[in-house]
Amino acid sequence: MSEALLAVSGLNAYYGAAHILFDLGFEVRAGEVVALMGRNGAGKSTTLKSIMGLIERRTGAIAFAGADISHARTYDIARLGLGFVPEDRRIFTDLTVLENLEVGSQPARDRTQQVWTPERLFELFPNLAEARHRVGGRLSGGEQQMLSVARTLMGNPLLILLDEPSEGVAPIIVDAMADMMIALKQTGVAIVLSEQNLPFAELVSDRAYVIEKGEVRFSGTMHELSGNEDLRRAYLEV
């Protein structure tokens, strides 16, 4: 078993007085796609935000690429190679597609890495190529989702935290997202996918963790989760 790229253990997070995550832990290896599964409000988004340092009160150990990032500032975490694609996309609506990509751009971490350029990303997201001079606010929901991922890739991350990419977009875009993720995986980027949509997660993920009420209730391969009907019924189905 290779060394974990991202290792989270004993993670607790709070919003004001509300305790949201309880000693949560999981691991991601380089190049792996890991799904965090759970219903609305299970704590998936909070987990990803805590890792990025976007939650004020959090405790626990978070290690990324050998560095302790549990007390690091958000921009330092991002610069280490941890990309974050938020659930609500948070596109800069006043900026053009190219300008959005510019904000995400960071120098490559080492010379061997193939860096992402707008042109390379437009191959992966042809829709965006046509809209490159359009402002973010004029894009469709699906295009905004693509742009949000592309913008994060401009930072040449080693791992992407992808928060519910299938939420609120048309089925045809969901299929495109799946293709895109498979293509991404082939470039060697690891992905943590927070999802409620099991069929979508099954298409792309190697392993899965199931989260319920801020705690990990299951961990195993995606295959094991798919085959376990009791588990699905208890934690995933509505």
């Binding site: 990025m52 976007l54 500032r73 958000t74 609506t93 904000v103 960071q106 913008r151 401009m154």
Partner: peptide, 11 residues
């Protein structure tokens, strides 16, 4: 527009 997102992109 969004300071936190800018930080999350490494700025």
């Amino acid at each position: 527009q969004d300071r936190d997102m800018v930080a999350a992109l490494g700025v």
